[in-house]
Design a binder for these strands. Structure first.
Lengths: 314, 314
DNA sequence: TAAAAAGATGTTACCGTTAACAGCTCGTTG
DNA sequence: CAACGAGCTGTTAACGGTAACATCTTTTTA
């Protein structure tokens, strides 16, 4: 309701001076500046984003594109979303949600999650800057932010070793995307470094399928085995198959990956590699703004954190 | 990039005529209208939302306020959010996410979820229209849209009776909010109508606590008992406590409420009362626009649907 | 100490759209 | 057939900001 003209009148200066105080304060004398700031404070002026947008040819809107199937939508995205909204609000930007790739001209940039390989071409073709959540394949030169997946499973595997589990296996997921491959490598590298024999199983990312797998391979799981899982979903199924009766965490250790929601509703609660979503959100936004300003493409990996709960022994 | 002036030039008319074709087509002659529409089509004009917003004193932004604690955020909200975004995009509106109540002037309306009793005063004080997701208490006269909670547990209870479970109990949640009370009433009413003896337990909405409850009261749960639960979270704990070995669904039936995510990762998968989020999102938006146009406060209840899965017998 | 440069503030025009009003054409009416 | 009104289209000004330029004052410089 209050606008630049009101402030200008209150401070006995022109609109332009007020605008300068806000955008280029160094170009205004100290006395005038403090007077204007006092006036702004007094009448409670807040800049009109719409008018600013019109004259600057910007929209102050960033789109969050959720390409994952809505039905199976991971709670991860909800958490990331809320953090993104916070970070952007602080910069005076609005976060818009979308589930389809469309070449709008009412947005300034896009943050994408849940993408598949097949989406990347369409994303590269867009006229606005794009940042992926999740490492992009090497044949696409796209900015991304991801948790450091390899370090994540490395932490998990090391923790298994330190906790004294003898045999340590990995249950990965059957998608050929960098994050998935990286998680597997984190396990494999650590096992090689520690001179252990590694064993990898692969399943679809569903608790029931993981549960079934464990039942099928139970004969090959001696007591004192640690099971590093590619996701909390898989870990949930593994824990369900093993169960307290079979001795989780005493006889079998289980570690998941993601640390959102699922880890908490599991029983016992999952030891898991937690993605620091607040940091990831901040990085995604910073990365996008960097691209807006310098057209600079940056790839970033954020270190994850192992959260020790009840599916591994101390 | 293309603007009204470009279309006007292409169609040999004034900008105003083009604007009219878009906003008040009945005020333009048929020939001119078709010519202008052809021009719009030809050069691919899309109205500039920002400029429109400036002149109309609207923002074309609706805020989705998630007041639930971020850490425990229910996947429900994520689903609702995605549906809301779709509905609003179709109307040319942007959905903005926020987690705190602030009296912005860059939004046109608010849809609130996860609110508590203590938030309502602050919400009523806002200058923009507000619609609640979830029935408001009778002492607050606020527009809301909710699933019909009473019918939901009624469906669940009836289904238990039809499936032949002898004893039927209800595990509710320990919050004093209308949705929670309504769910309990749906159970109680049905039990009275069918001349059954009802029994209500109350727990916090966490799977582990529900699991513990079942262990504690196991002695009072004869075989052939049906357990109607206030949420899928509670149902998840109940199922875990009972388990296939104890005979879910043959000896014990369990029904949850919500039908998002949790019902699917449970084992066996939950029979549940599903909230139709697409419909709810549509209603929330319609309701909000009604308020924007006529200042009319409307309360709406959307019928839920029972989804039969593996925690009740056929 | 006069001219040039630097500093501070104001004026104008514009971003893309629409409401309000003005103007033109044509048909109706007394 | 002059006056009037209905129907259609165009002109102007405004929404709330900001860049570019203009103007005025002060400082620097030769």
């Amino acid at each position: 309701m209050v606008n630049l003209a009101d402030v200008a009148h209150q401070a006995h200066v022109s609109k332009m001076t007020v605008s300068r105080v806000i955008n280029h304060p160094e170009k205004v004398s100290t006395e005038v500046r403090t007077a204007v700031m006092a006036a702004i404070e007094l009448i409670g002026y807040q800049p009109n984003r719409i008018a600013k947008a019109l004259v600057n040819h910007q929209n102050y809107v960033i789109q969050f594109l959720v390409l994952e199937d809505v039905v199976t939508v991971e709670p991860n995205y909800a958490i990331l979303l809320l953090h993104l909204a916070d970070v952007l609000n602080q910069k005076g930007y609005t976060l818009e949600i979308s589930t389809t790739i469309t070449d709008n001209d009412h947005i300034d940039g896009i943050i994408v999650s849940g993408w598949r390989q097949s989406d990347l071409l369409a994303l590269e073709a867009l006229r606005v800057p794009v940042v992926l959540y999740g490492e992009s394949p090497t044949d696409h030169d796209m900015a991304y932010v991801d948790v450091d997946n390899r370090i994540g499973t490395m932490l998990a595997t090391r923790h298994m070793i330190n906790a004294g589990y003898q045999k340590i296996i990995y249950v990965g997921m059957d998608v050929d995307l960098p994050f998935s491959n990286e998680r597997e490598l984190g396990y494999l590298d650590t096992m090689v470094a520690k001179k252990r024999v590694s064993r990898v199983y692969t399943v679809a990312n569903h608790s029931h399928i993981a549960e079934q797998l464990i039942h099928n391979i139970m004969a090959q799981l001696p007591k004192n085995t640690g099971i590093v899982c590619a996701t909390d979903r898989i870990a949930l199924g593994v824990v369900r198959a093993l169960n307290k009766k079979n001795g989780v965490p005493e006889q079998y250790g289980v570690i998941g990956f993601d640390g959102v929601f699922i880890d908490q509703i599991s029983s016992p609660q999952l030891t898991t590699v937690h993605q620091p979503f607040a940091k990831i959100a901040q990085s995604l936004v910073d990365n996008l703004f960097l691209q807006l300003q310098n057209s600079e493409l940056v790839m970033q990996r954020i270190a994850p954190e192992l959260i020790r709960r009840d599916t591994t022994r101390a």
